[in-house]
Amino acid sequence: MAHSPSRTRGSAAPARLPAELAEAARGGRALEGFLRGLPGIDAVGLEQRAAALGARGVGKNAKPRAIDTAIGMVDLTTLEGADTPGKVRALAAKARHPDPGHSATPRVAALCVYPDLVAEAVAALGEVPVGVASVATAFPSGRSCSRAKLAEVELAVDAGADEVDMVIDRGAFLSGRYGEVFDEIREVRSACGGAHLKVILETGELGTYDNVQRASWLALLAGADFVKTSTGKVSPAATLPVTHVLLRTVREWYDRTGQWRGVKPAGGIRTTKDALRYLVAVREVAGPEWLTPRLFRFGASGLLNDLLMQRRTQLDGHYGGPDHVAVDL
Protein backbone atom coordinates (compact mmCIF):
# COMPACT_ATOMS: atom_id res chain seq x y z
CA MET A 1 0.00 0.00 0.00
CA ALA A 2 1.48 3.29 -1.06
CA HIS A 3 -0.18 5.72 1.26
CA SER A 4 -1.04 5.53 4.91
CA PRO A 5 -4.30 6.14 6.69
CA SER A 6 -4.83 9.77 7.50
CA ARG A 7 -8.15 9.90 9.22
CA THR A 8 -10.95 7.50 9.91
CA ARG A 9 -13.57 9.68 11.44
CA GLY A 10 -16.80 9.59 9.52
CA SER A 11 -17.59 6.94 6.98
CA ALA A 12 -17.32 7.24 3.25
CA ALA A 13 -20.55 7.52 1.32
CA PRO A 14 -21.62 4.25 -0.33
CA ALA A 15 -21.56 6.05 -3.65
CA ARG A 16 -17.79 5.80 -3.66
CA LEU A 17 -17.84 2.05 -3.43
CA PRO A 18 -17.01 -0.16 -6.40
CA ALA A 19 -20.09 -1.41 -8.20
CA GLU A 20 -20.48 -4.85 -6.61
CA LEU A 21 -20.07 -3.45 -3.08
CA ALA A 22 -22.34 -0.50 -3.82
CA GLU A 23 -24.97 -2.98 -4.95
CA ALA A 24 -24.61 -5.00 -1.73
CA ALA A 25 -24.70 -1.79 0.32
CA ARG A 26 -28.23 -1.19 -0.90
CA GLY A 27 -29.35 -3.89 1.53
CA GLY A 28 -32.15 -6.37 0.91
CA ARG A 29 -31.72 -9.34 -1.44
CA ALA A 30 -28.53 -7.93 -2.96
CA LEU A 31 -26.91 -7.73 0.45
CA GLU A 32 -28.07 -11.22 1.33
CA GLY A 33 -26.74 -12.62 -1.94
CA PHE A 34 -23.40 -10.90 -1.41
CA LEU A 35 -23.04 -12.19 2.14
CA ARG A 36 -24.05 -15.74 1.27
CA GLY A 37 -21.67 -15.70 -1.67
CA LEU A 38 -18.58 -14.96 0.40
CA PRO A 39 -16.03 -17.77 0.16
CA GLY A 40 -15.96 -20.17 3.10
CA ILE A 41 -13.37 -20.25 5.82
CA ASP A 42 -11.71 -23.50 6.74
CA ALA A 43 -11.66 -23.50 10.53
CA VAL A 44 -8.73 -25.82 11.00
CA GLY A 45 -6.51 -23.99 8.52
CA LEU A 46 -7.40 -20.63 10.04
CA GLU A 47 -6.69 -21.81 13.58
CA GLN A 48 -3.40 -23.34 12.51
CA ARG A 49 -2.22 -20.10 10.95
CA ALA A 50 -3.33 -18.11 13.99
CA ALA A 51 -1.43 -20.49 16.25
CA ALA A 52 1.65 -20.39 14.05
CA LEU A 53 1.70 -16.58 14.00
CA GLY A 54 0.94 -16.56 17.71
CA ALA A 55 4.18 -18.42 18.29
CA ARG A 56 6.17 -15.72 16.54
CA GLY A 57 8.18 -13.57 18.97
CA VAL A 58 8.51 -9.79 18.70
CA GLY A 59 12.19 -9.85 19.64
CA LYS A 60 13.98 -8.22 22.52
CA ASN A 61 14.87 -4.97 20.79
CA ALA A 62 11.45 -4.34 19.33
CA LYS A 63 9.63 -5.21 22.53
CA PRO A 64 9.70 -1.78 24.25
CA ARG A 65 8.29 -0.18 21.14
CA ALA A 66 5.67 -2.87 20.75
CA ILE A 67 4.61 -2.38 24.36
CA ASP A 68 4.27 1.36 23.86
CA THR A 69 2.28 0.75 20.68
CA ALA A 70 -0.02 -1.59 22.57
CA ILE A 71 -0.53 0.86 25.43
CA GLY A 72 -1.55 3.50 22.92
CA MET A 73 -4.15 1.13 21.50
CA VAL A 74 -5.92 0.34 24.75
CA ASP A 75 -9.51 1.42 25.22
CA LEU A 76 -9.44 1.49 28.98
CA THR A 77 -12.77 0.00 29.84
CA THR A 78 -15.17 -0.19 32.71
CA LEU A 79 -18.54 -1.75 31.98
CA GLU A 80 -19.99 -2.91 35.25
CA GLY A 81 -23.38 -2.44 36.78
CA ALA A 82 -21.56 -1.04 39.81
CA ASP A 83 -19.78 1.71 37.87
CA THR A 84 -19.96 5.11 39.57
CA PRO A 85 -18.75 8.60 38.69
CA GLY A 86 -15.93 7.96 41.17
CA LYS A 87 -14.79 4.87 39.32
CA VAL A 88 -14.88 6.73 36.02
CA ARG A 89 -12.87 9.62 37.46
CA ALA A 90 -10.30 7.16 38.78
CA LEU A 91 -9.94 5.61 35.33
CA ALA A 92 -9.70 9.03 33.74
CA ALA A 93 -6.85 9.89 36.10
CA LYS A 94 -5.13 6.72 35.02
CA ALA A 95 -5.74 7.48 31.37
CA ARG A 96 -4.13 10.85 31.91
CA HIS A 97 -1.01 9.48 33.66
CA PRO A 98 -0.84 5.73 33.29
CA ASP A 99 2.42 5.44 35.20
CA PRO A 100 3.31 8.51 37.26
CA GLY A 101 6.78 7.11 37.90
CA HIS A 102 7.54 7.06 34.17
CA SER A 103 6.25 10.21 32.58
CA ALA A 104 7.12 9.13 29.04
CA THR A 105 4.54 6.34 29.22
CA PRO A 106 2.15 6.76 26.30
CA ARG A 107 -1.49 7.49 26.97
CA VAL A 108 -4.26 5.04 26.15
CA ALA A 109 -6.46 5.63 23.12
CA ALA A 110 -9.77 6.06 24.86
CA LEU A 111 -11.85 5.54 27.94
CA CYS A 112 -14.78 3.21 27.35
CA VAL A 113 -17.87 3.57 29.56
CA TYR A 114 -21.66 3.19 29.62
CA PRO A 115 -23.63 6.09 28.02
CA ASP A 116 -24.83 7.61 31.29
CA LEU A 117 -21.24 8.06 32.43
CA VAL A 118 -19.94 9.67 29.25
CA ALA A 119 -20.44 13.19 30.61
CA GLU A 120 -18.46 12.28 33.71
CA ALA A 121 -15.63 10.87 31.58
CA VAL A 122 -15.56 13.87 29.28
CA ALA A 123 -15.39 16.22 32.24
CA ALA A 124 -12.73 14.21 34.01
CA LEU A 125 -10.49 14.03 30.96
CA GLY A 126 -10.75 17.72 30.16
CA GLU A 127 -8.25 18.69 27.51
CA VAL A 128 -6.26 15.47 27.74
CA PRO A 129 -6.09 13.94 24.23
CA VAL A 130 -7.77 10.68 25.18
CA GLY A 131 -11.04 9.80 23.49
CA VAL A 132 -14.25 8.86 25.20
CA ALA A 133 -15.98 5.81 23.84
CA SER A 134 -19.42 4.71 24.88
CA VAL A 135 -21.13 1.40 24.40
CA ALA A 136 -24.70 1.73 23.23
CA THR A 137 -27.71 0.03 21.60
CA ALA A 138 -28.75 -2.01 24.63
CA PHE A 139 -25.26 -3.28 25.30
CA PRO A 140 -24.40 -6.11 25.75
CA SER A 141 -27.39 -8.12 24.47
CA GLY A 142 -28.74 -5.68 21.89
CA ARG A 143 -32.21 -6.80 22.84
CA SER A 144 -34.42 -3.74 22.78
CA CYS A 145 -36.37 -1.69 20.30
CA SER A 146 -34.69 0.57 17.76
CA ARG A 147 -36.05 3.62 19.51
CA ALA A 148 -34.37 2.75 22.79
CA LYS A 149 -31.14 1.90 21.04
CA LEU A 150 -31.02 5.17 19.13
CA ALA A 151 -31.90 7.11 22.27
CA GLU A 152 -28.83 5.61 23.91
CA VAL A 153 -26.64 6.61 21.01
CA GLU A 154 -27.97 10.16 21.21
CA LEU A 155 -27.38 10.24 24.95
CA ALA A 156 -23.75 9.25 24.43
CA VAL A 157 -23.10 11.55 21.51
CA ASP A 158 -24.80 14.54 23.14
CA ALA A 159 -22.69 13.99 26.25
CA GLY A 160 -19.59 14.28 24.11
CA ALA A 161 -18.63 10.73 23.19
CA ASP A 162 -16.06 10.60 20.38
CA GLU A 163 -16.71 6.97 19.67
CA VAL A 164 -19.74 4.75 19.86
CA ASP A 165 -19.40 0.96 20.35
CA MET A 166 -22.71 -0.52 19.25
CA VAL A 167 -23.76 -4.18 19.37
CA ILE A 168 -25.49 -5.88 16.48
CA ASP A 169 -28.75 -7.76 16.88
CA ARG A 170 -27.38 -11.31 16.87
CA GLY A 171 -30.87 -12.78 17.01
CA ALA A 172 -31.76 -11.09 13.74
CA PHE A 173 -28.42 -12.07 12.23
CA LEU A 174 -28.73 -15.75 13.17
CA SER A 175 -32.26 -15.99 11.87
CA GLY A 176 -31.06 -14.64 8.56
CA ARG A 177 -32.62 -11.16 8.77
CA TYR A 178 -29.45 -9.50 7.51
CA GLY A 179 -31.36 -6.52 6.18
CA GLU A 180 -32.61 -5.66 9.65
CA VAL A 181 -29.15 -5.76 11.12
CA PHE A 182 -27.88 -3.66 8.25
CA ASP A 183 -30.61 -1.04 8.60
CA GLU A 184 -30.03 -0.76 12.31
CA ILE A 185 -26.31 -0.13 11.86
CA ARG A 186 -27.19 2.46 9.23
CA GLU A 187 -29.49 4.26 11.61
CA VAL A 188 -26.94 4.23 14.39
CA ARG A 189 -24.32 5.44 11.91
CA SER A 190 -26.34 8.51 11.15
CA ALA A 191 -27.23 9.07 14.80
CA CYS A 192 -23.50 9.10 15.54
CA GLY A 193 -22.98 12.28 13.57
CA GLY A 194 -19.27 12.91 13.64
CA ALA A 195 -18.57 10.20 16.20
CA HIS A 196 -16.59 7.22 15.22
CA LEU A 197 -18.63 3.96 14.99
CA LYS A 198 -17.37 0.61 16.22
CA VAL A 199 -19.66 -2.34 15.54
CA ILE A 200 -19.52 -5.20 18.04
CA LEU A 201 -20.28 -8.53 16.38
CA GLU A 202 -20.21 -10.66 19.54
CA THR A 203 -18.40 -13.40 17.68
CA GLY A 204 -18.81 -15.84 20.57
CA GLU A 205 -22.50 -16.04 19.71
CA LEU A 206 -22.12 -16.35 15.96
CA GLY A 207 -21.09 -19.99 16.04
CA THR A 208 -18.90 -20.19 12.93
CA TYR A 209 -16.07 -18.29 11.31
CA ASP A 210 -18.19 -18.07 8.19
CA ASN A 211 -20.77 -16.13 10.20
CA VAL A 212 -18.06 -13.90 11.66
CA GLN A 213 -16.84 -13.08 8.20
CA ARG A 214 -20.36 -12.40 7.01
CA ALA A 215 -21.10 -10.12 9.96
CA SER A 216 -17.84 -8.22 9.39
CA TRP A 217 -18.70 -7.48 5.78
CA LEU A 218 -22.22 -6.57 6.75
CA ALA A 219 -20.95 -4.04 9.31
CA LEU A 220 -18.49 -2.48 6.88
CA LEU A 221 -21.11 -2.23 4.14
CA ALA A 222 -23.41 -0.48 6.60
CA GLY A 223 -20.77 2.12 7.42
CA ALA A 224 -18.78 0.88 10.41
CA ASP A 225 -15.43 2.54 11.08
CA PHE A 226 -14.33 -0.40 13.18
CA VAL A 227 -15.41 -3.98 13.58
CA LYS A 228 -15.10 -5.22 17.13
CA THR A 229 -15.15 -8.85 18.25
CA SER A 230 -16.98 -8.91 21.54
CA THR A 231 -18.70 -7.25 24.43
CA GLY A 232 -16.52 -9.07 26.92
CA LYS A 233 -19.70 -10.41 28.54
CA VAL A 234 -19.88 -13.61 26.51
CA SER A 235 -17.43 -16.47 26.45
CA PRO A 236 -15.50 -16.97 24.24
CA ALA A 237 -14.68 -13.29 23.75
CA ALA A 238 -11.84 -12.25 21.44
CA THR A 239 -9.70 -15.04 20.05
CA LEU A 240 -6.79 -14.85 17.66
CA PRO A 241 -8.50 -16.75 14.83
CA VAL A 242 -11.60 -14.58 15.04
CA THR A 243 -9.42 -11.47 15.00
CA HIS A 244 -7.69 -12.86 11.91
CA VAL A 245 -11.04 -12.98 10.15
CA LEU A 246 -11.78 -9.35 11.04
CA LEU A 247 -8.30 -8.21 10.04
CA ARG A 248 -8.53 -10.04 6.74
CA THR A 249 -11.89 -8.37 6.07
CA VAL A 250 -10.71 -4.79 6.71
CA ARG A 251 -7.68 -5.46 4.56
CA GLU A 252 -9.86 -6.66 1.68
CA TRP A 253 -12.14 -3.69 2.23
CA TYR A 254 -9.17 -1.41 1.81
CA ASP A 255 -7.95 -3.27 -1.27
CA ARG A 256 -11.35 -2.96 -2.91
CA THR A 257 -12.37 0.53 -1.78
CA GLY A 258 -9.24 2.36 -0.68
CA GLN A 259 -10.96 3.07 2.64
CA TRP A 260 -9.28 2.38 5.97
CA ARG A 261 -11.29 0.44 8.52
CA GLY A 262 -10.18 -0.72 11.95
CA VAL A 263 -10.42 -3.78 14.19
CA LYS A 264 -10.91 -4.05 17.93
CA PRO A 265 -10.58 -7.34 19.75
CA ALA A 266 -12.16 -7.11 23.18
CA GLY A 267 -12.39 -9.36 26.20
CA GLY A 268 -9.98 -11.99 27.39
CA ILE A 269 -6.79 -10.15 26.43
CA ARG A 270 -5.05 -9.81 29.78
CA THR A 271 -1.31 -10.06 29.37
CA THR A 272 1.41 -8.33 27.42
CA LYS A 273 2.17 -11.66 25.81
CA ASP A 274 -1.43 -11.84 24.54
CA ALA A 275 -1.29 -8.27 23.26
CA LEU A 276 1.95 -8.79 21.37
CA ARG A 277 0.46 -11.87 19.70
CA TYR A 278 -2.35 -9.66 18.45
CA LEU A 279 0.11 -7.07 17.15
CA VAL A 280 1.89 -9.79 15.17
CA ALA A 281 -1.47 -10.78 13.71
CA VAL A 282 -2.25 -7.16 12.80
CA ARG A 283 1.06 -6.78 11.02
CA GLU A 284 0.87 -10.07 9.13
CA VAL A 285 -2.83 -10.33 8.29
CA ALA A 286 -3.88 -6.71 7.71
CA GLY A 287 -0.48 -5.05 7.27
CA PRO A 288 1.92 -2.75 9.14
CA GLU A 289 -0.26 0.27 8.28
CA TRP A 290 -2.79 -1.05 10.78
CA LEU A 291 -0.34 -0.75 13.69
CA THR A 292 -1.91 2.50 14.83
CA PRO A 293 -4.62 3.31 17.38
CA ARG A 294 -6.58 4.80 14.49
CA LEU A 295 -6.98 1.28 13.06
CA PHE A 296 -6.47 -1.11 15.91
CA ARG A 297 -7.63 -1.09 19.52
CA PHE A 298 -7.69 -3.40 22.47
CA GLY A 299 -10.87 -3.50 24.50
CA ALA A 300 -9.56 -4.47 27.91
CA SER A 301 -9.50 -3.53 31.55
CA GLY A 302 -6.71 -5.58 33.12
CA LEU A 303 -4.35 -5.48 30.15
CA LEU A 304 -3.02 -1.96 30.74
CA ASN A 305 -1.53 -2.86 34.11
CA ASP A 306 0.33 -5.81 32.72
CA LEU A 307 1.66 -3.68 29.87
CA LEU A 308 2.78 -1.08 32.40
CA MET A 309 4.51 -3.70 34.51
CA GLN A 310 6.32 -5.12 31.51
CA ARG A 311 7.29 -1.64 30.45
CA ARG A 312 8.85 -1.03 33.85
CA THR A 313 10.67 -4.35 33.60
CA GLN A 314 12.17 -3.27 30.29
CA LEU A 315 13.24 0.10 31.70
CA ASP A 316 14.27 -0.82 35.22
CA GLY A 317 16.02 -4.09 34.44
CA HIS A 318 14.19 -6.09 37.10
CA TYR A 319 10.78 -7.70 37.23
CA GLY A 320 7.92 -5.45 38.23
CA GLY A 321 5.33 -6.19 40.91
CA PRO A 322 1.61 -5.45 40.80
CA ASP A 323 1.72 -3.06 43.75
CA HIS A 324 3.85 -0.65 41.75
CA VAL A 325 1.06 0.13 39.29
CA ALA A 326 -2.33 1.52 40.20
CA VAL A 327 -5.20 -0.94 40.62
CA ASP A 328 -8.30 -0.16 38.58
CA LEU A 329 -10.90 -0.26 41.29
Binding site: L174, G207, T208
Partner: peptide, 12 residues
Protein backbone atom coordinates in the same frame (compact mmCIF):
# COMPACT_ATOMS: atom_id res chain seq x y z
CA UNK B 1 -44.67 -37.69 9.43
CA UNK B 2 -41.84 -35.16 9.35
CA UNK B 3 -41.16 -32.66 12.13
CA UNK B 4 -39.22 -29.49 11.43
CA UNK B 5 -37.18 -27.81 14.14
CA UNK B 6 -34.63 -25.03 13.80
CA UNK B 7 -31.21 -24.20 15.16
CA UNK B 8 -28.93 -21.17 15.07
CA UNK B 9 -25.37 -22.46 15.32
CA UNK B 10 -23.74 -25.87 14.74
CA UNK B 11 -23.31 -26.61 18.47
CA UNK B 12 -27.03 -26.13 18.95
Amino acid sequence: VLSVLTFRIPEE
